[in-house]
C-alpha cells in the first residue's frame, strides 16, 4: 500500500506524464485536423519520424535548435502533401497510402542516418530545444513540480491544443473544415473548395506531427535514432479516436497514454510488471471504441474520396 502511495504521490510521475503525452497530443491534434476535413491519416508515425530526422539534420547544420524545429515542421508538412495529393486528387485508398508513407519514412530516415552520418549517429554537437521554467508557477508546491519546468514544446503543445479547438469550433475556417469532412457535396454547393480545405487540413496535420517528431529528437534528446517514434504515431491515432476527433479529447487521451507510459517507467525494477501496466491504454482504447464510454463517431466523409459532380 505504502509503495503505491509513494508512486502516486510523486510529482515527477505527473511531470513525466505531461512529457510523454506531448508528442502524442501534438500528432493526435494534427490527425484531428486531417480527419475533420475528411482525409484518414494513419501516416502520423512516418511523418513524425521525418520531422524528427530533418529537425536534427537542420539543427546540426545550422547549430540552431529553433531552425531545426522549423525544418522538422516543414518536412512534416511536405510529407503530409505526399498523402494529401493522392488522397485528394487521385482518390487513392488513404489507408494504403498512409501505410506506404510509414514504411517509406522508416526506411528513408534510417537510410539517411546511415548515409549522411555513418555509424556514429547524428553529431553530438547538435543543440536541443531549451527547457522553460515558468516564473511564478514553478514555485507552487507540487503543481509547480508538475507543470513548472518543461521543454518549450510542451508549452507549445498546450498552445496548439487550445488554438486547434478555437479554430475548429469557433472560426469560419473551422466550420468549413468540419463541413467538408461531414458532407463535401453540400460544402461544395455553398462555395467551399473541398480540395483546398482538405489540402489545408492534411498539411496542418502534417506540420503538427512534424513538431511532435521534433520534440522527440530535439526536445527529449538532441539526436535521431532509427525508428525513435516507436509506435507513438499509431498511439496518436488511437488518441484521436478516443478523443472523438476533438482537440481537447485528443489531449485528454494523450494524457492517459502518457500516464500509462510514465507509470510503467516508474514501476521499473519494482516487481510490478511494466509490460502489464503498458497494456492499460490499449485495452482502454478498445473499451472506448466498443461504446462502453460512449460511442465515438468519425466525421461522416472521413476516408471517402471526393469527386466533384460536374
Amino acid at each position: 500500500m505504502n509503495f503505491w502511495v509513494q508512486i502516486f504521490a510523486n510529482p515527477e510521475l505527473y511531470a513525466a506524464t505531461l512529457a510523454m503525452a506531448t508528442p502524442i497530443a501534438l500528432a493526435a491534434v494534427g490527425g484531428t485536423f486531417s480527419e475533420r476535413t475528411g482525409v484518414v491519416n494513419i501516416a502520423m508515425e512516418g511523418i513524425m519520424l521525418v520531422g524528427a530526422f530533418f529537425g536534427v539534420m537542420v539543427a546540426a547544420a545550422t547549430h540552431s535548435a529553433w531552425l531545426g524545429m522549423f525544418g522538422g515542421v516543414i518536412a512534416g508538412g511536405l510529407m503530409a502533401l505526399a498523402l494529401a495529393w493522392p488522397a485528394i486528387r487521385l482518390q487513392s485508398d488513404q489507408v494504403i497510402v498512409g501505410m506506404a508513407l510509414n514504411v517509406f519514412a522508416g526506411g528513408l530516415t534510417a537510410f539517411l542516418l546511415n548515409t549522411v552520418y555513418g555509424y556514429n549517429g547524428t553529431p553530438t554537437s547538435t543543440p536541443s530545444l531549451p527547457i522553460v521554467t515558468l516564473p511564478w508557477i514553478s514555485h507552487i508546491p507540487f503543481i509547480g513540480q508538475v507543470i513548472g519546468q518543461h521543454d518549450v514544446v510542451v508549452y507549445l503543445m498546450f498552445l496548439f491544443v487550445i488554438l486547434a479547438h478555437f479554430t475548429l469550433f469557433h472560426t469560419n475556417l473551422g466550420l468549413r473544415m468540419r463541413a467538408v469532412g461531414e458532407h463535401p457535396e453540400a460544402a461544395e454547393t455553398v462555395g467551399i473548395s473541398v480540395v483546398k480545405i482538405r489540402y489545408l487540413g492534411v498539411t496542418i496535420g502534417g506540420m503538427l506531427s512534424g513538431l511532435a517528431g521534433v520534440y522527440l529528437s530535439l526536445g527529449m534528446l538532441s539526436s535521431f535514432e532509427v525508428n525513435m517514434t516507436n509506435g507513438r504515431g499509431f498511439i496518436a491515432l488511437a488518441a484521436m479516436i478516443f478523443g472523438k476527433w476533438t482537440p481537447f479529447g485528443a489531449f485528454g487521451a494523450a494524457l492517459l497514454f502518457g500516464f500509462a507510459t510514465a507509470l510503467s517507467i516508474a514501476l521499473q525494477g519494482s516487481g510490478v510488471s511494466a509490460n502489464l501496466v503498458g497494456i492499460l491504454p490499449y485495452a482502454l482504447t478498445i473499451i472506448a471504441l466498443t461504446g462502453l464510454i460512449g460511442r465515438s463517431r468519425p466525421p461522416a466523409a472521413d476516408g471517402l474520396p471526393y469527386v466533384a459532380t460536374k
Binding site: 505526399a82 494504403i96 506506404a100 508513407l101 514504411v103 517509406f104 519514412a105 522508416g106 526506411g107 528513408l108
Partner: peptide, 9 residues
C-alpha cells in the same frame, strides 16, 4: 524499406 514504401505508394 524505402523501395517497399514506394511500391505500396
Amino acid at each position: 524499406d524505402v523501395i517497399t514504401g514506394i511500391i505500396i505508394f
